[in-house]
Every structure is written in C-alpha cells, then in structure tokens.
Design a protein around this nucleic acid. Sequence first.
DNA 1: CCAGCATTGTTAAATATTCAATAATTAGCA
DNA 2: TGCTAATTATTGAATATTTAACAATGCTGG
Lengths: 165, 165
Amino acid sequence: MSNESATEPRWLDDEEQHAWQAYLHATTLLEDHLDRQLQRDAGMPHVYYGLLVQLSRAPRRRMRMTELAQNAKITRSRLSHAVARLEKNGWVQRENCPSDKRGQNAHLTDEGLRILEKAAPGHVNAVRAAIFDRLTPEQISQLDEICCVIADGLQPQGADLPWLR
Amino acid sequence: MSNESATEPRWLDDEEQHAWQAYLHATTLLEDHLDRQLQRDAGMPHVYYGLLVQLSRAPRRRMRMTELAQNAKITRSRLSHAVARLEKNGWVQRENCPSDKRGQNAHLTDEGLRILEKAAPGHVNAVRAAIFDRLTPEQISQLDEICCVIADGLQPQGADLPWLR
DNA sequence: CCAGCATTGTTAAATATTCAATAATTAGCA
DNA sequence: TGCTAATTATTGAATATTTAACAATGCTGG
C-alpha cells in the first residue's frame, strides 16, 4: 500500500530535466531565429515559407487545403488564415477543386515561386549554420531518429483523421 | 573559376532533408500538443507555464523581468505582455525593484504556485509520454547534447546582451 | 431516395506575439 | 559634475494563432 503513483507522478530525473531544458532552449531559439531571418529576407514567418515549399513540390504546384495542412502539421483554420494572407501577397491563389465542390486547391503562383526561390538560399544557409554545420553525421542521424520517434508518438497514427484537433 | 558557391548555396542532401523534416514535424507537433494540454488543464499556454516554473525555482519566487526573459528565451516585450496577463489571473505580481528604479520583479503568488502545482503532474506526464518514455537513455543523452550544440550556436554567447533581438 | 452523419473550408472573436517607439533610469566617462 | 550612451520595462499597432461555431457539400445505410 505504498504505491502513491496515482497522486505523485514520476518527475524528471536530473538528466531528463537537463535534456528537456536544452530541448526547449534549442527549439525556441531556432524557431525565433528562422522566423526573423525569413521575416527580414522574405517578408513572411517560417511556417508560411514552409507552405510555399510544400506547394512548390506538389504536382502542378497545387494542393488541397486539408492535405497541405496535414503536411505542414497545422490546423485547417490556421492554414485558412495563412493562405488568405499569402493570397493577398499574390504568392498563392485559391481555386475550386473540380472533383469536390467543398474543396479548395491552393496554387503557388509564378510570383510566389519567384519569392520562394529568392528566399531559399538564405534560408538554407540559416538552417545549415544553426544545425547541419554544427552536428556530426552521426548526430544528424540520431536527431532524425529521435524526431521520428517523437513525431510518431504524437500523430493520431491509427486513424488518419482528425489528425489535429 | 568553376566555383559558383556565391550564387548556388549548399542545399541539404537527402539525409539532412529528412532529418530537417522530422525535426520540424516533431517540434511543431509537440509544441501544439503541450500548448493544448496546458491550455485545457491549466488555462495557459506552454510558454506561460514555463514562466511560472522559472519563478517557482527562483529565490523568494521573485525574478527580474530581464532575467526571466533571458531564461525563458523570449523577448522582454513578450514577457511584459505575458506577465500582464498572468497578473490579471492573480498568479504573478509585479513589484518595484529596490535596487534599480527602472526594474521590476515578477513574483509568483501563492495562488500562482497552487495553480502550478496542480498543473505540474499532468504536464510531466505529457512530456514523459511524448519524449522520455519513448527514447532510450542513450537517445536522451544524444538529444541533450544535440540541443546544447544548437542552442550554443544561436546564443549571442560572446556578449551577454542584447541576447535576443 | 434520403436522413443523418462526416468532411471541407471558412469565419469571428479572443488571445498571443512581433515590431518599433517610448519614458524612465542608470552607467560610463571627459 | 554633467553629458551621452546604454539599459529597463512597457506600450500600441500590426500580425498571427486558437477556439468554437458555421455553411456547404459529400457519404452511407435503411
């Protein structure tokens, strides 16, 4: 009768605590850094840039809103707002989906592609400088594996929906 | 004269690309997950929770605004807004700093501490479930090391200010 | 067919964050 | 001392995100 696990959780030990702190510091510093870099050089936050990248890789530079949101790991609502803004910039255009009257396709415009190509080198540089030029090849593959484990655990992987909220 | 590095950046190779994608997915999924968990269980986003944690560990549960911002890796402006909100909740209180008339101390109130203690178990659980229960001890120390490297590279480490923006 | 349920994408309002500018104070130094 | 630069913290406005609700359309079983 000495098991109090119901009321007393398993706290993090020193190593876990340290790793967790390091993780928080690294991720927040990096995200801030990339946001500023892209805001300055391309006029958009990192997430928006990621959307353009996704679209640029899609067939005909088009993607359904839901699929785009899934790939970028953001909610549909957030995507709606983001695309509205990108559309105002002329970088993305919305189109009705032919096969589903509810659907919309986001289309990366020529101008959007130009902006993306202009921003890409600086962005890769920043990512390299922050990560890949500082880690050994072993560490890169460790990071990859670790992140996959974490991401797998957070994806509603059983079902493919409603995936996020 | 075949070096075009000035115009053509070193793009990420396949492994780097994969690791980068995994990193982005893991970090955004995790941050969203923790934000929702804490918003639901404690009525505040993850960053705000982190501020309360910092204060709870500080001597007399008090800390100068700038120091708090540094520890949490956020801007002073963001902290000002955050503390304003936490103060409205009654969880934090601002006090004039005795030794520097410009300064303010943020003080974690008794009620703030109660809220924190109530929220902590669920939060640790969530962090454990997402990370530490899924990684091997080796991976945990790898993650620690990797994150330290990344964070070190992004800190204006030479000077201790202006540290963020 | 069609009634109900699910999915798609959007919206408004509340909340949070960034950015630039500001007032107040302190520190450095001629 | 007195002057300038730097530091502290805040503010307002612009931007971004969350949350819950919604309209429109699609799907499915009776």
